[in-house]
Design a protein around this nucleic acid. Structure first.
Length: 111
DNA sequence: CAAGTGACGATGC
DNA sequence: AGCATCGCCACTT
């Protein structure tokens, strides 16, 4: 049931994120050709984040934070996954995207 | 078909 | 820095 090509594109975009790098919803939206509609990205991911093998945890919001979804445990889980990939968090629990290098299309830790 | 909802983002206060 | 609003669009009810 291909809900829509849109979702498919979003999944592909997310899947294109290299390990150790992160992207914002806005970026994914742009890559999927739906720039300006980052909500759809989150919506699409939520629709089937576990059905597919996509690195959903590499998606964070523009502020460099884990999008709270009411489940604090899930947030922690995502953070651990990112840290295990080399993503560094600040003490306050946010990722400073400004200090990240914009290597390719995604954000990546400077060191 | 209309209204409500949402893993967001930009703006304004 | 935090909160309120609006925009934008797919999906659900």
């Amino acid at each position: 049931m291909k809900r829509s090509d849109l979702y498919k594109r979003i999944y592909e975009a997310v899947r294109a994120i290299p390990r150790g790098q992160v992207a914002t919803y806005g970026q994914i939206a742009r890559m999927a050709g739906i720039g300006g509609q980052p909500r759809l990205v989150g919506y699409a991911l939520h629709a089937s984040s576990e059905e597919y093998d996509i690195p959903w945890h590499r998606i964070i919001n523009a502020r460099g934070r884990i999008s709270p979804r009411g489940d604090s445990e899930w947030e922690t889980h995502q953070r651990l996954l990112l840290e295990s990939e080399g993503i560094t968090f600040r003490t306050n629990g946010s990722v400073d995207l400004a200090e990240f290098g914009f290597d390719d299309l995604f954000y990546k830790p400077i060191e």
